[in-house]
């Protein structure tokens, strides 16, 4: 996959993010870990913690197995009201390239719809991604989800 053409690169990352959001928003969570490399990091944190260097995550997966465990727990163990997300992802910025990884940033908002029809703006934030383009399809080698706010309404079951 070429990394030389800036427009093509943005197109590749945009396509990856579109597929990623579609996977979550269509409740196809079993496929969610497939967007990551085996040793990928996936962490949800807040802008405050990120800026101050506080390391704790709201979700902190250190590899794809932990993401699969998340999905298994959501399906089999955790109890929460049926709900779905609608991701709206902003235009993508390419912020760097190194060691075969592309660094990209995109803003997002998520609207959460509950089974009773109540629908609220849920969260805003940004994805700080490192994307591995060396394989047959692009994969996240790292996905840091930085929430703009510290506050989570009720619970955060489904990944962002």
């Amino acid at each position: 996959m070429t990394q030389d053409d800036p427009a093509a690169l943005i197109g590749t990352v945009t396509g990856l993010l579109a597929d990623y959001a579609h996977c979550i928003d269509s409740d196809d969570l079993e496929r969610w870990p497939e967007f990551f490399t085996e040793q990928a990091q996936y962490r949800i944190t807040t802008a405050f913690n990120h800026d101050k260097g506080f390391p704790v995550g709201i979700i902190d997966c250190r590899n794809r197995n932990m993401m699969e465990d998340r999905v298994a727990a959501l399906r089999k163990a955790n109890i929460y009201e049926p709900q779905r997300y609608r991701h709206i992802i902003s235009l993508v910025r390419i912020t760097g390239q190194s060691d075969g990884l592309v660094e990209a940033e995109a803003g997002f908002i998520v609207v959460r719809t509950m089974i009773d029809g109540s629908q609220d703006f849920f969260l805003a934030g940004r994805y700080l991604d490192k994307i591995d383009l060396s394989g047959s399809r692009p994969l996240f080698a790292e996905k840091l989800v930085v929430l703009d706010s510290d506050k989570i309404d009720t619970l955060l079951a489904i990944p962002l």
Binding site: I44, V56, D60, N78, Y80, E81, I152, L155, L156, A157
Partner: peptide, 18 residues
């Protein structure tokens, strides 16, 4: 690592939010 257990997305605490 074990912060995954707790908080609004915690394996053993998210239900308390609801």
């Amino acid at each position: 690592m074990q912060a995954n257990f707790i908080g609004p997305a915690g394996y053993i605490s998210m239900e308390d939010g609801a």
